[in-house]
Simulated assay, not measured.
Amino acid sequence: MNAQKIVTTVAAIAAGFAANKLISLVWKGVTGHEPPTGDADDGEISLGELVVFAAVSGAVVAFARTFATRTTGKWMSRGEIKKA
C-alpha cells in the first residue's frame, strides 16, 4: 500500500476527530448543555437545534478532513517523507 495514502487517511481521521471534539466543546460553551447525540429518548432537544448542530458539525468536520487531506498530500508530494 502507498505510504502517502496511509498518512493522508490517518491525517483525515485525526482531523475529523479533533474537529468533532472542538465542535462539542464550543456547542457546550455556547448553549450550556451537551450537543445532540441522536438518541430518540433525548426529549430536551428541539428539531431546530438538532438541524443547526448537524449542519454546523457536518460542515466543520468536512472542512477539517478536506484541509488535512490536501495539506498532507502537498506535504508528502514535496518529498519531506521518503517513499517506501
Results as ranks from 00 to 15, higher is better:
residue 1 M to C: 05
residue 4 Q to M: 06
residue 4 Q to P: 00
residue 4 Q to A: 06
residue 4 Q to C: 05
residue 4 Q to H: 04
residue 5 K to P: 00
residue 5 K to N: 09
residue 9 T to S: 02
residue 9 T to E: 00
residue 9 T to C: 01
residue 10 V to E: 01
residue 10 V to C: 07
residue 12 A to T: 02
residue 13 I to G: 02
residue 13 I to R: 05
residue 14 A to P: 02
residue 14 A to S: 06
residue 15 A to Q: 02
residue 16 G to A: 08
residue 17 F to Y: 14
residue 17 F to I: 12
residue 19 A to P: 07
residue 21 K to S: 09
residue 23 I to N: 10
residue 23 I to V: 14
residue 24 S to C: 09
residue 24 S to M: 08
residue 24 S to N: 12
residue 24 S to E: 12
residue 24 S to A: 14
residue 24 S to I: 08
residue 27 W to P: 01
residue 27 W to I: 03
residue 28 K to S: 13
residue 29 G to P: 04
residue 29 G to K: 00
residue 29 G to I: 00
residue 30 V to G: 08
residue 30 V to L: 11
residue 31 T to W: 09
residue 31 T to P: 04
residue 31 T to L: 11
residue 31 T to R: 13
residue 31 T to C: 07
residue 32 G to K: 05
residue 33 H to V: 08
residue 33 H to Y: 15
residue 33 H to L: 11
residue 33 H to R: 15
residue 33 H to I: 04
residue 34 E to K: 07
residue 34 E to F: 09
residue 35 P to G: 12
residue 35 P to I: 02
residue 36 P to I: 14
residue 36 P to L: 13
residue 37 T to A: 14
residue 39 D to N: 14
residue 39 D to A: 12
residue 40 A to V: 14
residue 40 A to L: 14
residue 42 D to C: 14
residue 42 D to E: 15
residue 42 D to Q: 15
residue 43 G to K: 15
residue 43 G to D: 14
residue 44 E to F: 14
residue 44 E to Q: 15
residue 44 E to M: 15
residue 45 I to A: 14
residue 45 I to H: 14
residue 46 S to H: 09
residue 46 S to T: 15
residue 47 L to K: 13
residue 47 L to R: 10
residue 48 G to K: 11
residue 48 G to M: 10
residue 49 E to I: 13
residue 50 L to P: 07
residue 50 L to A: 14
residue 52 V to W: 04
residue 52 V to A: 11
residue 53 F to W: 13
residue 53 F to H: 13
residue 53 F to T: 02
residue 54 A to C: 03
residue 54 A to Y: 00
residue 54 A to D: 04
residue 55 A to H: 05
residue 55 A to T: 05
residue 56 V to G: 00
residue 56 V to C: 02
residue 58 G to I: 04
residue 59 A to V: 08
residue 59 A to R: 01
residue 59 A to Q: 04
residue 60 V to M: 10
residue 61 V to R: 06
residue 62 A to E: 02
residue 63 F to I: 12
residue 63 F to Y: 10
residue 64 A to T: 06
residue 64 A to I: 03
residue 65 R to F: 00
residue 65 R to H: 00
residue 65 R to C: 07
residue 65 R to I: 04
residue 65 R to K: 03
residue 66 T to Q: 03
residue 66 T to H: 07
residue 66 T to E: 05
residue 69 T to I: 05
residue 70 R to D: 06
residue 70 R to A: 11
residue 71 T to C: 05
residue 73 G to A: 00
residue 73 G to V: 01
residue 74 K to W: 04
residue 74 K to D: 09
residue 74 K to M: 08
residue 75 W to C: 03
residue 75 W to N: 03
residue 75 W to I: 11
residue 77 S to G: 03
residue 78 R to Y: 09
residue 78 R to G: 09
residue 79 G to S: 04
residue 80 E to H: 15
residue 80 E to K: 14
residue 81 I to W: 05
residue 82 K to V: 11
residue 83 K to Q: 10
residue 84 A to V: 11
residue 84 A to M: 11
residue 84 A to T: 12
